[in-house]
Simulated scan of single mutants.
Amino acid sequence: MGGEIFHFQGQHWHLLPERAIYWEEEKALILSDLHLGKAAHFRKAGIAVPAGIIQDDLFRLQQLITFYLPERIIVVGDMFHSRENNEVQYFQLWRQQFSNITIDLVKGNHDILADAIYEQLQINVHPSLTLRSIHFIHEPCEDSNGYQYTFSGHLHPAFVMAGAGKQRLRLPCFYFGRYCGILPAFGHFTGHANLDPSISDTVFVIAGKSIIRAQ
């Protein structure tokens, strides 16, 4: 697996082109915004969506699990997109392969399944989560709030790279501000929001199978 090891806040974060982070000290995979069930939700509304999206996303996650052997997976919100559907049932079958791994979900605005379903899926649900003074919430923060550092998701961040001949390319990214970081959307069936970081912020873009520091 390719990637970039970013030593930050006294921790080692493996920034992965699969749109996730491996947190070395906690032996944890961190990701956000899978939006499982979103494709089925759109199809139900009569909107044509390519098949196999959930399978592709969960296969990427499976590959990361096989390589890094994490003890836990931290999902920073919007693991699911809406109410229960066939894709949630597919995830339940997928989950059985990794029943030994703890899954912690920091609840996002789209995570509206019944509590009993999360229990069936062996998912621990939290309004927020703090480990080693690193805080996880779904929606981005603006200051420290008393924590060492905060990670969030929700925005599906992207950064516009400018090239020769006025070429511009928008790429998903990892964002590290002074107090808060924002994770890229793990799910492929999501939009993106362009970031306008300050000069002191750090941004890594995901370009295919590579991680590139943009600033």
Rank of each mutant, 00 (worst) to 15 (best):
S82V: 03
I103S: 02
W94K: 10
T130C: 13
F91A: 09
F6T: 07
A48I: 13
L58V: 11
I5T: 15
I5D: 10
A48W: 01
S200L: 08
E18Q: 15
Q148A: 13
G108L: 09
P127K: 14
L36A: 04
R213E: 08
Q11P: 01
I74K: 07
E25T: 15
D143T: 15
E142I: 14
G37R: 06
L105Y: 02
F8Y: 12
P157F: 00
F159V: 06
I103F: 08
V88H: 08
Q167K: 15
V88F: 02
F151N: 09
H14C: 11
M161L: 13
P140L: 05
L36C: 05
L169A: 03
F91P: 12
K27N: 13
V160R: 13
T66M: 10
L129R: 07
T190G: 04
V76G: 01
R95P: 08
G165H: 09
V205G: 05
F176K: 08
V205R: 05
R19W: 02
F136V: 10
N194L: 14
Y22G: 13
L105S: 05
Q97V: 00
N109M: 09
L105I: 06
I123C: 06
Y22E: 07
I5H: 09
L131D: 00
L195P: 12
M1H: 14
E87D: 04
S32Y: 00
K44H: 14
L69P: 00
A158C: 09
A185E: 02
G146C: 08
Q62G: 14
G10H: 04
P50K: 11
H135F: 04
D196H: 15
Q167L: 13
N86W: 05
F8R: 13
G153S: 10
I117R: 11
Q148P: 00
S32H: 01
A185K: 12
L113W: 08
D111L: 05
Y68W: 15
G46S: 08
I134T: 07
L129N: 10
V49C: 12
A48G: 00
Q96R: 15
I47A: 07
G163N: 01
A114D: 15
A39W: 03
P157W: 03
H35A: 00
A45F: 00
S144P: 07
P70G: 02
Y90V: 13
A48E: 09
D78G: 06
P70I: 10
G191Q: 10
P17T: 12
E87N: 11
R178E: 15
Q215C: 06
V106H: 12
Y68G: 08
E26N: 14
A185L: 09
K27S: 14
A193E: 06
L171R: 13
M79L: 15
I21M: 09
F136Y: 10
N109S: 05
A40R: 12
S152I: 00
I47F: 06
Q62T: 15
G191T: 11
E84V: 15
A185D: 01
N194Q: 11
V125H: 03
H192S: 12
D104C: 12
S152V: 05
F159G: 01
L155E: 09
G46A: 01
L131Y: 04
L105P: 10
A193G: 04
I101D: 02
A158P: 08
I137S: 11
G37A: 03
W23V: 11
Y68P: 10
A164K: 15
Q89A: 14
F98E: 04
G52H: 12
F6W: 14
F136S: 11
L131M: 13
I65N: 09
